[in-house]
């Protein structure tokens, strides 16, 4: 996957990364996207790939307009993941930015 240049710091601090890991099946993206839409969370980008036999979907989302609290959203995603036999989580973007970029 191509690595595009990063945007400047003006990009804002309310972004998070949603990760979905599990066995591939029909309807994963639809289910997660619907949940995020209901919570007024804007999806900025989606990537998916198969790594070590696991389906890995990664979404960058913007929480700026969402009335839901972070914890609330996280709990809802975790719960939905459990129901679908997937691991769904959300983490603030800074984690990835700091760990992998000097």
């Amino acid at each position: 996957m191509a690595m595009l240049p990063e945007a400047g710091p003006a990009a804002g601090g309310n972004r998070a990364i949603v990760t979905v890991i599990g066995v591939d099946r029909v309807g994963i993206i639809a289910a997660v996207a619907t949940m995020l839409a209901e919570a007024q969370v804007n999806i900025l980008d989606i990537s998916q790939s198969i790594m070590q036999e696991f389906f890995v979907m990664i979404m960058m989302v913007d929480l700026a307009r969402s009335p839901s609290g972070f914890d609330e959203l996280k709990a809802a995603l975790n719960e939905r993941g459990n129901a679908m036999g997937l691991k769904i989580d959300i983490q603030r973007e800074d984690v990835f930015k700091l760990m992998h970029r000097v």
Partner: peptide, 10 residues
Amino acid sequence: MSISSYSPQE
């Protein structure tokens, strides 16, 4: 910034 600034591996 897009998600593409991180690779899925990262």
